[in-house]
Simulated scan of single mutants.
Amino acid sequence: MLALSLGLAVVAQAGSLLVNLLVKGKTGEATQTLRMLAGLPLELLLNVFATALLTIVVSRAVLGRSATAGEAWRDARPRLLQLLGLTLLTVLLGPGVVLLGFTPLIGYTLAGQGSVAIAGLLTLVGLLTVPVAVWLWMRFSLAAPALMLEKQGVLTALSRSRRLVRGAWWRVFGINLLGHVLALVVAMVVVVPFQFLGLLLGFESLDAQGLPDTADQGVAMLLLLAVAGIIAGTFTTPFIAAVGVLVYIDQRIRREALDIELARAAGLPEQSGTGWGAQGDPAPARR
């Protein structure tokens, strides 16, 4: 997993570095926004590859089996286009709902109307769509593992995710939220020391608020941050992928007794009275 993530992180940071060098503060305050928008296609594509390959690796690890990069690629390749379509759908679904909610406010503002009360009401309507977007994101969060591991189509995978998350939304949300927070903390722990090192070496200046000036970073600082990004991505990418797959497997165990199928697939003998592959303790339990 680390080897696959390292390769993906190198490609991601190389693309990000190229974008940063091309933009490099030439657009003033819009520099950061342009960097993010320009890097989105590559980030989305790499996310699809990471999800596909690491899902195969984690699913085999659950059975106690290893998988090489070549084996993971052979298993994942037939589903890549479907996974790309599914990823685009789920990524755009949340922002689309929020944009739809704020459309009346945008139209009202463009019309030149000046009622503060109406603008505030329309803002509230738009904000109410944010929880809906989060709810939809989590409702379909298990669609990618379902597509990869069950060989399902896009719509069927979305339906599978909906059924698996039903009644366990808060558990799935809490685990995913905690996983992303931990990944963010790890990334910050890695990146922040590199940024301070760049400041100490004079690679980066401070803005008027005393914060690192990210609008116009030098080449040396961009290279230093790219190295930090590679290190952080190598560890956070497989972690996030593993969280998604393991939540999917956990929900199937809870709903569909998948543990019995996994035991059979792992070749564990059935032992009546002690469960699949359980090792009975011949000594009596002490109290």
Rank of each mutant, 00 (worst) to 15 (best):
L6P: 05
G7N: 06
V10C: 08
V11Y: 06
V11R: 05
A12F: 05
A14W: 02
A14Y: 02
L21V: 13
K24W: 15
G25K: 14
K26Y: 13
G28Y: 04
A30I: 14
A30P: 11
T33K: 11
R35N: 15
R35I: 12
M36E: 15
L40N: 13
L44N: 07
L44S: 06
L46K: 08
A52D: 01
L54P: 00
L54Q: 03
T55S: 04
I56G: 07
S59M: 12
S59W: 03
L63A: 06
G64F: 10
R65S: 09
R65K: 11
R65W: 07
T68V: 12
G70K: 01
A72F: 03
D75Q: 14
L81K: 08
L86T: 03
L86Q: 02
L89S: 09
T90M: 07
G96D: 09
G96Y: 04
L100V: 12
L100Y: 12
G107I: 11
L110R: 08
L110Y: 15
S115A: 14
A117N: 11
A117V: 14
I118D: 15
L122N: 00
G126Y: 05
V130T: 12
A133R: 01
A133K: 00
K151N: 13
Q152M: 15
S159K: 01
S161V: 04
S161P: 07
S161F: 02
S161T: 02
S161K: 02
V165G: 04
G174N: 07
I175M: 02
L178N: 04
V181R: 06
L182K: 01
L184V: 08
V185A: 15
V189T: 12
V190F: 15
V192T: 09
V192G: 00
P193N: 14
P193E: 14
Q195N: 05
F196H: 03
L199V: 11
L201N: 10
L201K: 11
G202E: 04
F203M: 14
E204R: 11
D207E: 09
Q209L: 14
G210D: 02
G210P: 00
A215K: 06
A215I: 02
D216T: 13
Q217A: 06
A220S: 11
L223V: 07
L224A: 12
A226C: 00
A226Q: 01
A226P: 03
A228W: 00
G229L: 04
I230L: 12
I230K: 02
I231A: 12
I231W: 11
A232M: 09
T236D: 15
V243W: 00
G244L: 00
R252G: 03
I253L: 09
I253P: 04
R255Q: 11
R255K: 11
D259Y: 15
I260A: 12
L262S: 07
L262M: 14
A263S: 06
R264P: 08
A265E: 12
G267M: 05
G267W: 03
G267N: 03
E270T: 10
E270S: 12
Q279R: 07
G280K: 09
G280N: 05
D281C: 07
A283F: 13
